[in-house]
Simulated scan of single mutants.
Amino acid sequence: MATKLIPRIPGPRLGRKEIYLPNFTLQLIRTPNLPPTYATFIVPLNLNKLDIRDYLWNVYGVPVLSVRSYIQQQKIRQDKPGAKRPSPRRWYRPRSIKKMTIEMEQPFAWPEAPESFEEWDKDTFDAANKDREEQEKQFRPDSRKEPTKERKSIAEQAKALLEGKQKWVPNKIVEDEWEDVGEEVEVETDVDVSKVEKS
């Protein structure tokens, strides 16, 4: 008894490049300004339009109608990122980023963003990033020109005094601040201080 084969839907004509275990990653980007039938990916620089079309069809079963790609050049920075002490006037340009925008037949809806990020401990991550940025600012060549935190707080206090938001309160001298140990005694009584003659 012969079994009937399940008819398979013929897909688009694809390339013959076989990729079993890909050593690259595709990063899907949120693009609220594009229609829902478009999706944008950050891809490796050596990936071409045919590769992303084959990959999306074979892995996810998504037919791609058209692909647009462009390479975004990064800004020049001082020294390499992650350096403990950035060297001034040593310029470094990070590797360019390649982006591909594909057009699909069916629209894709992004899941809603979570309201709270407590499960991922985002508060600690943000605090660590802020602390790292403050430490990096200390080693920059122009860090001496920027005012310190103490100077900023003194300027804010002076501004509040001038605007009348705060009142000036002088330091009060407490009479019983010093201990009274007895009568006053002059220490050096035998020192002869002669007058200086004018010439």
Rank of each mutant, 00 (worst) to 15 (best):
T3Y: 08
K4T: 14
P7T: 02
P7K: 14
R8Q: 10
G11A: 07
P12S: 05
P12R: 13
R13F: 09
G15P: 05
K17W: 09
E18K: 09
I19E: 08
Y20C: 13
L21H: 15
L21Q: 10
N23H: 12
N23I: 05
T25R: 14
Q27C: 02
L28I: 05
L28F: 02
L28E: 09
T31C: 11
P32E: 02
N33S: 15
P35E: 12
P36C: 10
T37Q: 06
A39H: 00
I42Q: 02
I42C: 01
V43S: 04
V43P: 00
V43G: 00
P44A: 05
L45N: 00
N46W: 08
N48Y: 12
N48I: 02
K49I: 06
L50P: 07
D51P: 00
D51C: 01
D51K: 01
R53M: 03
D54L: 03
D54G: 00
D54Y: 01
Y55K: 00
W57F: 14
W57M: 01
V59G: 03
G61P: 00
V62G: 00
V62F: 15
L65A: 03
S66N: 10
V67G: 03
V67S: 01
R68M: 05
Y70A: 05
I71P: 02
I71W: 03
I71F: 10
Q72C: 12
Q73N: 05
K75W: 04
K75H: 07
I76A: 04
Q78R: 01
K80H: 13
K80Y: 09
P81S: 03
G82T: 11
K84A: 14
R85D: 14
R85V: 13
P86I: 01
P88L: 06
P88M: 04
R90Y: 11
Y92K: 08
R93W: 12
R93G: 01
I97L: 10
K99F: 10
K99D: 00
M100K: 00
T101G: 01
I102Y: 03
E105D: 12
P107D: 09
F108E: 01
F108T: 08
W110C: 06
A113K: 12
A113C: 11
P114M: 15
E115M: 06
E119V: 10
E119I: 05
W120H: 15
D121Y: 13
K122C: 07
F125E: 13
F125P: 01
D126F: 09
A127M: 09
A127P: 12
N129T: 11
K130A: 11
E133A: 13
E134I: 02
E136V: 08
E136T: 09
K137Y: 07
Q138I: 14
F139G: 01
R144N: 05
E146T: 03
E150P: 02
R151C: 03
K152C: 04
S153K: 10
I154C: 02
I154A: 08
I154D: 01
A155G: 08
K159D: 11
K159N: 12
G164A: 10
Q166N: 07
Q166H: 13
K167E: 13
W168L: 12
V169K: 07
P170W: 06
P170R: 01
P170H: 14
P170K: 06
K172Q: 15
E175V: 05
E175I: 05
D180I: 06
V181G: 04
V181S: 07
V185A: 08
V187H: 06
V187F: 09
E188K: 07
E188C: 04
E188D: 12
E188V: 02
D192R: 15
E197F: 04
